[in-house]
Amino acid sequence: MIPSDFFRGRRLRSSLAMRELVRENAVTANDLIMPYFVVETDDDSFKKEISSMPGQYQLSLKQLKIKVGEAVADGLKACILFGIPAEKDDVGSGAYDDKGIVQKAIRLLKDTWPELVVIADTCLCEYTSHGHCGLVKNEYVQNDPTLNLLAKAAVAQARAGADMVAPSDMMDGRVAAIRAALDEEGFINTPIMSYAVKYASAFYGPFREAAESAPQFGDRKTYQMDPPNVREAMREAVADLEEGADILMVKPGQPYLDIVRMVRDTFDTPVAVYQVSGEYSMIKAAAQNDWIDEMGVVMESLAGFKRAGADLILTYFTEDVLKVLK
């Protein structure tokens, strides 16, 4: 005889409608931020697929407008911009030039879609000839001398119309420097989404091609976090909040869900997570070999971010997911 007092979880899984009725977490268009790579070029037709990131492109301003327009029609709410200048130098001057490529892209997008939340990645690595995120002396990345340049970049981005700046460099004290500079220039309402917990990860490989930002010597392990560390993540998050961060980001995503959960449980501020280039490329490669159901894996991974406590998800799958949600 079968006992009648055991748990029957299947009662609430009996149909799609039933499963959706009791679903605990859901991914919506409001959760997603699409990264774009915009190139400084006179060729309006420039649209170059990134070989290690199938389906992602380096785009001219005109092609960026076309891509963003398609995504907005599908429900895009927010994007983040990475710039690739025509020329680089050892001080990353394109990052804080009012006529720099990201500043041009910000103006273009905000003039066309005022309600679109346009976020600017605030860093020097895409603009420096050496590929590092700060000023370099004797092949060592200088912390304090870099802060003023990051602050100048954030102000230039805000002046161009950025709704939010996102410092990704991991220099100590950069949030405080950026907050002070923004406030001094009258941008007291421009929020900072800090890459607060950014690990020196092997998952960034394809991004180096996309942003043309591979270091010309050494690596970034002296300023990005050591992957085995957990307690250090909390110290970094606390420091950024005390310095004026409005949103805390964890990067990468899937391998660091424990960190996302710890940040969520510790702080009341919004939490973002970045599903980085390596995560994207691995899913794409497996799907192209018919080893997985691409969108099934994508949606499951995004649900995992939400389940871990993320409020916002930066993912290169945003455009595809918007079509599914639509």
Rank of each mutant, 00 (worst) to 15 (best):
R179D: 07
R179P: 10
A180H: 15
A181R: 04
L182E: 14
D183R: 09
D183Y: 13
D183H: 11
E184D: 11
I188L: 11
M193D: 03
S194W: 09
S194T: 13
Y195I: 05
A196H: 07
K198V: 09
K198N: 07
A200Y: 08
S201V: 14
S201F: 05
S201A: 10
A202D: 11
P206Y: 08
P206D: 13
F207P: 05
F207S: 11
E209S: 15
A210Y: 04
A211Q: 01
A214D: 13
P215I: 15
F217K: 03
F217Y: 12
G218C: 11
G218D: 07
K221P: 05
K221V: 03
T222C: 07
Q224M: 08
M225F: 06
D226K: 08
D226W: 14
D226V: 03
P227T: 09
P228N: 13
P228R: 07
N229A: 07
N229M: 10
N229W: 06
R231G: 15
E232I: 00
A233I: 00
A233D: 01
M234L: 14
A237Q: 04
A237E: 08
V238T: 14
D240A: 03
D240S: 08
D240E: 09
L241M: 12
E243S: 13
G244Y: 07
A245N: 06
I247D: 02
I247K: 01
I247G: 01
L248H: 01
L248W: 01
L248T: 00
L248S: 00
Q254T: 14
Q254A: 12
L257V: 08
L257D: 01
D258N: 14
I259V: 12
V260P: 09
R261S: 15
R261W: 06
M262V: 08
R264E: 04
R264Q: 00
R264A: 01
T266W: 05
T266L: 02
F267E: 04
F267C: 05
P270E: 00
A272F: 01
V273S: 00
V273P: 00
V276E: 12
V276K: 00
V276S: 03
S277G: 13
G278R: 02
E279F: 09
Y280K: 02
Y280D: 00
S281H: 10
K284W: 03
K284T: 11
A285N: 13
A285Y: 07
A286V: 11
A287Y: 03
A287P: 03
N289T: 08
D290T: 06
D290I: 10
I292K: 04
I292R: 05
E294A: 14
M295H: 13
M295Q: 14
G296D: 06
V297W: 14
M299E: 09
M299K: 11
M299Y: 09
